[in-house]
Amino acid sequence: LVRYRTISKIPQITLNFVDLKGDPFLASPTSDREIIAPKIKERTHNVTEKVTQVLSLGADVLPEYKLQAPRIHRWTILHYSPFKAVWDWLILLLVIYTAVFTPYSAAFLLKETEEGPPATECGYACQPLAVVDLIVDIMFIVDILINFRTTYVNANEEVVSHPGRIAVHYFKGWFLIDMVAAIPFDLLIFGSGSEELIGLLKTARLLRLVRVARKLDRYSEYGAAVLFLLMCTFALIAHWLACIWYAIGNMEQPHMDSRIGWLHNLGDQIGKPYNSSGLGGPSIKDKYVTALYFTFSSLTSVGFGNVSPNTNSEKIFSICVMLIGSLMYASIFGNVSAIIQRLYSGTARYHTQMLRVREFIRFHQIPNPLRQRLEEYFQHAWSYTNGIDMNAVLKGFPECLQADICLHLNRSLLQHCKPFRGATKGCLRALAMKFKTTHAPPGDTLVHAGDLLTALYFISRGSIEILRGDVVVAILGKNDIFGEPLNLYARPGKSNGDVRALTYCDLHKIHR
């Protein structure tokens, strides 16, 4: 019993810090008490220290592992850092350059016999395009090294910054494609005289377009951006097909006994025919423009016929181009109408809503002055909100995010209106959640004399007048207030005048 009563005193000691020596009952000389009392004092002292730490809000209350900052290894790049964003855009520009100039170089340097010394005699450094290609190869190699040090988000939505895990993730992902696209074939085969082989191998750079397509997928929600990307894709495919079309004609031209190829026909049409040795002929500019003209006309199913396939190889390629053109029509131009419709969806919704308003007016036989006010209010409210119901949009977000959005939407009023000066951010967040926005066209009466005042109004834009009878008592403008002081009276009061809008007004109100 003594032991039980001794232990039962522990909660009292913990909360009230009572010393055991003052209790005459606990001072009985028993061996059990002498053993338990020192333990009680020690526990009391420890609990006292913990309570003191909690009340003082000291940093040592938290466990040590929670006080440590997340460790980022040296030379690790955050995937959302500004440097990584700028670097990704730079790589994107280099990939676009590669997609345009690599097929052009591979096709127009394929057994090209233009006048001038061969590239091997001039030297590697004197070729501007080769120098640019070398810079692109170096940048792609540097990009691989950067990807080995860039964080990523795993399946659990955690940012991984450990170098080993980053390397394994990159090896399992895009490393092989990036490595093949970054191989400097110019340096590996330079001086061997195989410019045709170098041009063909350099087309491996186009593998990076797969990554670019995935990154550009984030802009699919913007109709104008999608339309622009589709047109660029169409032009890029036409450019690639033009390079292939020229390569076919250029390879067949020296081996044909009869002059029936499209390059021969082009030379005869523009007065620059090929001679018996295969030299001469149109310039590279004429060849490229004509090839691009043929691919565009074939892809769009126009086909004027002034550039036509004559050999079997050219006919087979033309059939493939027609098939590609039909697929592009289905996948690209078939979506253009939907994209344009999405661009004008706001206008369509406006006309639909206006039609419903006019049908309501016609069905209920609203008189002319009231009908005009109804239409003007709808037009003004639509121009202010673009038909978007803010309350319906915010309803799907958590309250903390709703408060931040409301604070942002009402920031101008909260910053410049005098009653809100000096208020804490928590108070402003709470008030912003209570605001209701209303609009009024010129001549609209917001409050009639004798109406119950259940709200306090803040003028965000425009001006109003307060009338008693036919006498203008006051004219209020931006950041002015009218209405009933909230919670100042037990019952809502009545208006002693009319409140009429002089201009288009936007008002925020808080109800009782």
Rank of each mutant, 00 (worst) to 15 (best):
G261W: 01
H439L: 06
F185H: 04
P398S: 04
T437L: 12
T76N: 01
I260R: 05
D404P: 02
A182I: 06
G303I: 01
S326T: 15
V226E: 14
A348F: 14
L370C: 03
E112T: 09
S326L: 07
G199A: 11
L263V: 03
G426K: 03
M231K: 01
W240M: 03
P128I: 14
F83L: 09
L323N: 01
C406N: 08
N310K: 02
R71W: 05
K84L: 03
F171L: 13
R205I: 01
I77N: 01
H79N: 02
F296N: 01
T98G: 01
L374G: 03
S331A: 11
Q365V: 03
I332M: 04
Q372E: 13
V212D: 04
T102I: 08
R211P: 01
F304D: 01
Q365W: 01
Q341A: 14
L78R: 09
Q269L: 01
A182M: 09
L206H: 01
F304K: 04
V212W: 13
V210P: 10
R342P: 04
W245E: 01
Y124L: 14
C400D: 04
P309C: 01
I366C: 01
I141N: 01
L207I: 14
S220R: 05
R218T: 08
D88L: 01
S81Q: 03
N410H: 13
W262E: 01
E114Y: 12
R421F: 06
T76I: 13
Y65F: 06
V180M: 13
R342C: 04
Y124F: 15
F140W: 03
G191H: 14
R205W: 01
V307E: 01
H169C: 04
G325T: 01
H439K: 01
I388G: 03
L323E: 01
R342W: 09
T233G: 14
F228G: 11
D444I: 08
A440I: 13
G267M: 01
G249C: 01
R429G: 03
M139T: 05
L94R: 01
Q415Y: 11
A432S: 08
R259C: 05
R259E: 06
K425S: 12
K215L: 03
F83P: 05
T385S: 03
S308D: 01
T352V: 08
D268L: 14
G325V: 01
M433A: 04
A235C: 14
G443E: 01
T102P: 01
G422E: 12
T102M: 08
Q127W: 01
Y384K: 15
G199W: 01
F378S: 06
S258W: 11
H380R: 12
F296E: 01
W89M: 03
P128Q: 03
M251D: 01
I237H: 01
I324H: 01
R214Q: 05
G280N: 01
S326M: 14
I198E: 04
T150C: 04
E196F: 05
T445P: 05
L188M: 12
A247E: 01
E195V: 14
K436D: 10
S345N: 10
V289F: 01
A106Q: 15
I96E: 01
G280M: 01
L401Q: 01
L355H: 09
R214C: 04
P442T: 03
V447A: 02
E359I: 01
F378H: 10
F108Y: 01
P70L: 09
P367C: 05
P118N: 14
C232A: 11
H408Y: 08
T98Q: 01
V336W: 03
T311K: 01
L292H: 01
A440K: 03
A213W: 03
T445C: 12
Q365Y: 01
N391I: 07
S161W: 06
A167S: 04
I270H: 01
I366T: 01
Q269H: 01
W87K: 01
F171Q: 01
T385A: 05
P442C: 03
I72Q: 14
G173K: 04
I141D: 03
A238D: 01
G278C: 01
S326H: 01
Y377H: 07
W245L: 01
Y377A: 10
K285S: 10
E157N: 11
L374A: 06
A213G: 09
L90N: 01
G280I: 01
N410I: 04
H351C: 03
Q372H: 09
V212G: 04
K434G: 03
I177A: 10
G164I: 14
S308T: 09
L197N: 03
I183Q: 03
S277V: 05
G396N: 07
L206Y: 01
G305S: 12
L343R: 14
F234C: 04
F185C: 05
P441S: 08
W262S: 03
F435W: 05
V168P: 01
L197Q: 01
P163R: 01
L216R: 04
H351F: 05
W89K: 01
Q353D: 15
E196V: 13
A204Y: 11
G249P: 01
I340P: 01
L67Q: 05
S383V: 04
I244C: 03
Q353E: 10
S277W: 01
L94C: 15
A181Q: 04
S345I: 09
L428Q: 13
L207Q: 01
G396Q: 15
E115Y: 03
I96T: 01
K172L: 05
R71F: 14
A155P: 13
L67C: 03
Y219K: 04
L129D: 03
P367S: 04
S258C: 03
T102Y: 08
M231W: 14
Y293D: 01
V212A: 06
R349K: 09
N154M: 09
I77H: 01
C243N: 01
Y104R: 01
S308W: 01
W89N: 01
R165N: 05
G396M: 10
Q127R: 05
A213N: 04
W382Q: 05
P82A: 12
G281N: 01
S297A: 03
A330P: 13
I361V: 12
E376C: 11
A167G: 04
C243W: 01
V212R: 03
I260A: 03
R421C: 13
W75P: 01
T445L: 12
S313M: 14
L414R: 03
L414Y: 10
F435H: 02
S383D: 15
A381L: 12
M390P: 07
I270C: 01
R214T: 04
A181I: 01
A242C: 01
A155D: 10
R259H: 14
I146C: 07
A392L: 08
D133L: 01
P70C: 05
R165K: 14
A392C: 04
A69S: 07
V160C: 10
F108P: 01
H169V: 04
K66F: 12
M390W: 04
A107Q: 01
T437V: 11
I198C: 10
R358N: 07
Q253I: 15
N156V: 09
R259I: 03
S161P: 03
F378N: 05
L230M: 12
